[in-house]
Computed example of a mutant assay.
Amino acid sequence: MSAPQAAPSQSVRSIVLSPGKFWGLRRMADGGGRFKMLAVDQRPPIKNRVAEARGEDRSRYADVRAVKRALMAALAPHATAVLADPTYALSDAMTVLAPHHGLVVTLEDSVFGEGRDGRLSKAIDDWSVSKIKRAGGDAVKVLTWYHPDQDAASRQAQLDFTKRVGEACARYDIPFLLEMLLYPLAGDVGQTKDYVEQAGKRTDHVLKTVETFAAPDYGVDVFKLESPIPAKDVPPPGDAATAALFAEMDRLAGRPWVMLSAGASQAAFRNVLHYAFDAGASGFLAGRAIWWDAFQHFPDMAAMEAALSGPAADYMKELNALADAKARPWTGWFDDGIEGLPRPVGWESEWMQGAYADLEGRL
């Protein structure tokens, strides 16, 4: 695919932020409006590695929970927000995270369904947007497996699932953070069900996916995006063709977005972030690129915790400094102010008008 021409980012006035969504995004970012978010919601990658290290067929619940607690304890102090799953991490996040940390909660089950030639996302049993809101979450995260060439029925199921989540997030006034990952179709080389970046992915497939879910039907507030080319192939900063691809992704996203690491190496993810930040990304939401090397010490928890507090924390500080220097604050998408604060209606509206007028004035 030929590289599209870079287009300058523009303030997007068509996005309406209600007070709840605005406050949730503030909670997820630092004071400068940049997202430096730690992901510990991974389930199969951690569970599989834990079982392998123990020489067992299945991971132990206590082991997976202990690993996630250690990740948060060591690395959350360097994050603005943490992405946690309800099954293993959320209960410990309530006590490990500091009051100033944002809390993003994942909704999708790690066990996805199978269509004829496509993956089908679903919510974790007994979890919903409303439950995440009641649990104190500042945002809802969903991974929607998607491929533009998957069979029509699977594709429509994914679109419908995402739309329902977006509608629920609007109903409960909580930010919707959407992650999309391409995956190999049944006949593709490198077919796998692992949560990894597709080795042979096509740039046009990545960009088409972003364009599809940027439609207002899906109610996305923040995108969690993968590199438009395999992370290992991203050159050091300065390549014009690569920069143009990231700029096109920014244009198609049309709202705040962050980069995911998808298991990329630390060097590769560093390169990815340079291009993403230059294009307009507002930060990162990453896990394995930060802590995977330290995790390899499991089941020696002392060695793992030392590596998390040392090299892993140092790498995260490096990413934070890069974000401070180059990332675009999420508020930059609303250079003329936040619009769309709903006004109260009915008998109580008269006495509330003063409070809403003051709130709008502050924004």
Rank of each mutant, 00 (worst) to 15 (best):
G115N: 02
A98P: 09
F112C: 13
Q156Y: 01
G113N: 09
A123E: 14
Q150L: 13
L181K: 12
R116C: 10
A153G: 05
V111P: 00
K193N: 12
C169I: 02
S130E: 12
A123H: 02
Q158G: 14
V104I: 15
F176D: 12
V140W: 01
T95Y: 14
T87M: 02
E114Q: 13
I174H: 00
A157Q: 14
T106M: 11
Y172C: 01
W127Y: 06
M94I: 08
V196Y: 05
S154H: 03
L90Q: 08
D126Q: 06
E108Y: 00
R164L: 05
V129H: 01
G187H: 06
Y195E: 10
S128A: 01
A98M: 13
A93N: 08
S91T: 14
D85V: 05
A98Q: 15
V140L: 11
G102N: 12
T162D: 03
S91D: 14
G136T: 08
P148A: 09
A153D: 15
D117T: 03
V96G: 04
T106R: 08
T192I: 09
D125F: 05
D85F: 04
D92M: 11
G187F: 08
I174S: 07
D173W: 00
L120M: 06
G113T: 09
T162S: 05
G136D: 08
S121C: 12
F176Y: 15
A93T: 06
A170C: 05
V140K: 04
K133F: 01
